[in-house]
């Protein structure tokens, strides 16, 4: 099993694995600074479970389950 952002618990952090977010989403996130090797922290989950709030490079993003699962961690 590969570990993804979706597997993090609130407060936990991980390191983005090299070249693992593919497609337009990958490019979009990468342009926003989610490049390989940077730390990601799962800040919290929404009251209904999703989306999750992640913190990268000093700012917060909300991601749905699908998006969170597609970001693989080291």
């Amino acid at each position: 099993m590969v570990k993804t952002v979706d597997d993090l618990r609130p407060g936990e952090s991980g390191i983005v694995k090299t070249h693992k977010v593919k497609g337009t989403l990958g490019k979009h996130l990468r342009e926003m600074g989610l490049i390989s090797g940077i730390p990601v922290k799962l800040e919290r989950k929404a009251p209904l479970g999703y989306p999750v709030e992640i913190r990268i490079q000093g700012f917060s993003l909300a991601l749905r389950k699908e998006e969170a699962q597609s970001i693989e961690l080291e």
């Binding site: 989403l25 917060s60 991601l63 699908e66």
Partner: peptide, 8 residues
Amino acid sequence: APFIMELP
């Protein structure tokens, strides 16, 4: 479109 929303 993927859902990416900044929480400013």
